[in-house]
Each structure stands twice: as structure tokens, then as C-alpha cells.
């Protein structure tokens, strides 16, 4: 195991009656891009804001670069960068002035040109902040987060509200950060984003981490693939394959042994003279895994209530 940059044990946060974070354990190593994924209200932002020192915790042990963020030590702030969901920059300063202002707060800042290069704002360096587009403002947020050459960068939903082109641009930027050797804790509710960027993903639902692995591992831990087809009226689909009918009339089954199951299915179809209309075989996406995990949790809580 590498060196832990973030270590969290038994983290809890209570707001009155509501427990937003219910016993979270996390370990993030140096150089990792780690995605914290979950539906809105899952407790992602609360967890990250505790790690950033913006919020107090109710219980648990938290260590960020060896510091307790709850103590608001300057030495920790000098080594971390935070990109919040909200922009909050002076509208009348230029891009270069804004980044420079923040660079001045840190003992060993990154060179201005390097920052603007990484976030792709070189052309806008002398523009006023208020004249930037939404996507450019978000890049400036990241630029400000990078100002102090942080070892660890918190990115809270960096692409929310972006159009697809801007998102691709932001992804390229986050990959640049990995090249620089930064440890990145990313929160997002976009599954493709986590899949594209993260070394490891934790899925958070209702204040708890329900799964944690590499994106590929999360998918592989589940069934390998999904087979779908449209069965003709009255056809007796082999029961051992576990096919079920969906609302749109397609038969669907998950399989861990695609070759064998597909062979069984097609043999049956040939023997019976059945045409497998709309036959598709697809890999599970992180989205399928995510939806199953979040659904399960909701089923459980419905049963409980």
C-alpha cells in the first residue's frame, strides 16, 4: 500500500435529527484520482467539506496529510487546494489578477503561466472575471484551487452545468492534474465522469459508502454482461438463464458466463426455430451498478419503514 493522503474512520455528521453521514471509512493514497459518487443528498459534499475543514464533524477520526482539518491549521491549507461548488470570485478583477491574488497566499505557488496552461485560460488572462462564460469561470475556480501547488486537490462537482464539449475539456484538465502527480478527491453525480477519470470510486448512498473499488472492479464485481432480446408470443424461454421481462417487452438477463449462456440461448432458439429479435449483448456500465446499488438501498429502507 502507498502512503495515505486522506484517512477517515467512522466519520459521522448529524444535523439535528438527520444524520447526513453515517459512519464513513475512506483511505486515499498519494497520486490517486478518487471519485466520491452518489445521488444528490447522499452526504458527499458534507463529507468533503469536513475533509476541507469547512464543517465540523459529529464523530470519527479524520486525517488529511497528517493533519486534523477541524483545527484549521494554516500549514494544512498551504498544501491543499479546494474547488467549491460555488464560484465566489471578485467579478472586477482579471483572470491573471485573481490567480495572482490567491498565489500570494501560499509560500510556494505554481507559476501563473503554468496554471493558466493547465486549465486552458491562457487566452483569457486579461479578461475580467464577470465576462467569462460559465465553463471558463469553473476553470478559473480550478486555477484558484491550484494556485498554491497543492499536493491534494478537492474538486466538488467540477462539471455540473457544463455542455458536453466543456465537460470533455474539463476531463482533459483533470487528467493533466494526474500527470502533475496531484492527489484528487472528486465528487460527482455523473457516472461517466467517474468512470473516465477515477482510479478508484466510492459510491455513497444515504450517508454510507455502499461500494468501493476501481471503476472496472465495481463493474466486474457485478454480473459481466446483459443479454436482451424480444421473444415471440408464447415462446418458452429456458428458465435456467434467469430471463425476466421488462416493461418495454424485452427479455433481459444478467450473466457472469456470457459465452455459455449465449450458447444456451442461441441453441434453444435454433432448436425451437425462434428468431431472437433485437438481440443485444452489452457490458454493464458503472451506471447499471450504481442504479442497482442505489435501488437496493431504497428497497431496504422502504421495507424498513
Amino acid at each position: 500500500m502507498g502512503e495515505a493522503v486522506i484517512e477517515v474512520r467512522g466519520l459521522r455528521k448529524r444535523y439535528g435529527e438527520l444524520e447526513a453521514v453515517r459512519g464513513v471509512d475512506l483511505r486515499i493514497e498519494r497520486g490517486e484520482v478518487f471519485a466520491l459518487l452518489g445521488p444528490n443528498g447522499a452526504g458527499k459534499t458534507t463529507t468533503v467539506e469536513i475533509l476541507e475543514g469547512h464543517r465540523d464533524r459529529s464523530a470519527g477520526d479524520v486525517s488529511v496529510l497528517g493533519y486534523d482539518p477541524g483545527r484549521h491549521e494554516v500549514a494544512l491549507k498551504e498544501r491543499t487546494g479546494v474547488v467549491l461548488q460555488q464560484t465566489g470570485l471578485e467579478p472586477y478583477l482579471t483572470v491573471a489578477e485573481t490567480v495572482d491574488m490567491f498565489r500570494g497566499y501560499y509560500p510556494r505557488p505554481l507559476p501563473l503561466d503554468e496554471i493558466l496552461e493547465v486549465v486552458g485560460l491562457k487566452e483569457q488572462r486579461d479578461q475580467r472575471v464577470r465576462r467569462l462564460s460559465g465553463g471558463q469561470q469553473r476553470r478559473l475556480d480550478v486555477a484558484v484551487g491550484l494556485a498554491g501547488d497543492p499536493e491534494l486537490l478537492f474538486l466538488d462537482e467540477p462539471t455540473t452545468g457544463f455542455d458536453p464539449t466543456a465537460r470533455r475539456g474539463a476531463w482533459a484538465m483533470i487528467r493533466n492534474l494526474r500527470e502533475l502527480g496531484k492527489t484528487v478527491l472528486l465528487t460527482t453525480h455523473y457516472l461517466d465522469e467517474a468512470q473516465a477519470l477515477a482510479d478508484r470510486v466510492a459510491i455513497m448512498v444515504r450517508g454510507e459508502i455502499v461500494a468501493e473499488d476501481t471503476p472496472a472492479g465495481l463493474v466486474a464485481a457485478d454480473a459481466d454482461a446483459v443479454i436482451r432480446f424480444r421473444a415471440p408470443e408464447g415462446a418458452a424461454v429456458p428458465e435456467n438463464l434467469g430471463f425476466g421481462e421488462r416493461e418495454d417487452g424485452l427479455m433481459e438477463a444478467r450473466t457472469t458466463d456470457l459465452t455459455r449462456d449465449l450458447h444456451t440461448l442461441t441453441s434453444w432458439a435454433l432448436d425451437e426455430g425462434v428468431v431472437l429479435e433485437d438481440l443485444t449483448v452489452s457490458r454493464l456500465s458503472l451506471e447499471d451498478v450504481f442504479l442497482r446499488l442505489t435501488d437496493e438501498d431504497e428497497d431496504e429502507s422502504e421495507e424498513a419503514s
Binding site: H54, V74, K77, L84, Q86, G88, E90, Y106, G148
Partner: peptide, 9 residues
């Protein structure tokens, strides 16, 4: 703005 400043050293 204040929150962001608070996060800086």
C-alpha cells in the same frame, strides 16, 4: 467569496 478565502491559508 468568504468561504473561498477561508479555505486559503
Amino acid at each position: 467569496v468568504l468561504k473561498r478565502i477561508r479555505g486559503a491559508p
